[in-house]
Amino acid sequence: MRRGLHIALLLAIAAGGHSLHAQATGGMAGAVVLDKVVGIVNGDVILESDVQEEMHFAHLEPIGVPTGSDSLQRAMRRLVSRTLILQQMKEQQQSFGITDAEVTKQIEEMRKSLPACKEYDCTTEDGWKKFLATNDLTEADVLTHWRQRMQILKFIDVRFRTGIRISSKEISDYYEKTIVPSFTKSGTQPPPLDKLSSRIQEVLLQEHVNETLHDWLKALRDEGSVQVLDPAYGQSSGSGTDTEEDD
């Protein structure tokens, strides 16, 4: 019941269109600012601070960071998708133990290859700390975020890779239609198919997983309740269901 009252209070804040400031009483000093609710996914609340944090985490991705309203909307779409996946993991009682050593190893690899890290030389501790400070991140934030990311990827791998079979014809077609023309265009001889077969299989497998995941997430959105309460964070239909697709 307390949780229900808490959600009702947050919804009231969102309906007001601004954050609620609770003045100090009973020894509290200053004002306490409660987050504005900007979305609800099957009862789970997404706060304005969640979106801001997600925008900071975008600096860890090997692609350009969007700016303006586009960055808000992309961050919201990622949060919605992640929330839907985490809800399914909980419902299906799927948990994956990831050790600190595994997370640290991946983060170290990311520090070596992340384009945005080059100007800071993130391979050094000083450079890494400067990069984090510039993007309003902490090492603890990154560790927690990356661990959850790895858990989600494991869930996706188990949930969608199982049962997918890539035929020899698919591999040969990809080689002839994609690999060979690419090498021909550059004026070089392509390696023989048998040398690239395993790599092509992995690429095709990932494509199948991505397609299946995309359709699965869309079905979860359609079947559930995904509401964006502030137009700045995305488009909503008349019923309040987010119609934007995930990136």
Rank of each mutant, 00 (worst) to 15 (best):
S19V: 09
G163D: 12
H18C: 04
I171P: 00
H21A: 04
V158G: 06
R78L: 05
Y233G: 00
D215E: 15
M28Y: 13
A22D: 06
S225A: 11
R149F: 11
T212N: 15
W128R: 01
T99Y: 06
S69M: 14
G127R: 01
E207P: 14
F155M: 07
I164G: 11
D141E: 12
V37W: 00
E119P: 02
Y120R: 03
E109L: 06
A232S: 09
I98C: 08
D222P: 02
D136L: 15
G163C: 06
V142R: 01
T184V: 06
L143D: 04
A219D: 14
E139P: 05
S237A: 11
G224R: 04
T188Q: 14
V32L: 13
A101K: 12
L20Q: 03
D50L: 01
I63A: 12
D121E: 09
K218M: 07
A15K: 14
K118H: 03
S69F: 12
R165H: 06
K90E: 15
D50K: 03
W146E: 07
S237L: 12
I63S: 11
E223Q: 14
S198H: 08
S168N: 07
K118G: 03
K36G: 09
T243M: 10
R74G: 10
L9C: 12
V209W: 09
G187H: 07
Q235L: 08
M110I: 09
T124V: 03
Q73W: 01
G26H: 10
D246P: 04
M28S: 10
C117T: 03
E244P: 01
Q88C: 09
R111I: 00
W216Q: 07
I13C: 08
L5I: 04
R159I: 03
E176D: 04
L137S: 07
A101P: 03
D194L: 11
L84I: 02
D242S: 05
A29S: 10
S49N: 13
R2F: 13
Q93C: 14
D100V: 12
C117V: 04
L86E: 09
Y233H: 01
I7G: 10
L9Y: 08
N210K: 15
L86P: 01
Q94G: 06
L204R: 01
V51D: 00
E48V: 13
I200W: 02
S186T: 06
G26E: 14
V65T: 11
L137E: 04
K185P: 02
T241N: 12
L5M: 10
Q206D: 15
V65N: 06
G68L: 11
S71T: 14
F160Q: 04
I156Q: 09
G4V: 14
T144P: 04
Q92R: 13
L47K: 12
Q148I: 07
H6S: 08
R111G: 00
L10A: 13
D230T: 04
K154Y: 07
T134E: 12
Q92C: 11
T67I: 10
V65Q: 07
L229W: 06
R221T: 00
E223P: 07
E48S: 15
S186K: 14
E176A: 04
S81T: 07
H145P: 02
L10K: 08
G68K: 10
S182D: 06
Q73F: 01
V228M: 05
S167C: 03
D246E: 13
F57D: 01
L114G: 00
T99A: 12
G39V: 01
G27I: 08
G64I: 05
G16D: 12
P192E: 07
A24K: 07
R82C: 02
V228A: 05
S236L: 05
G26V: 06
R199C: 02
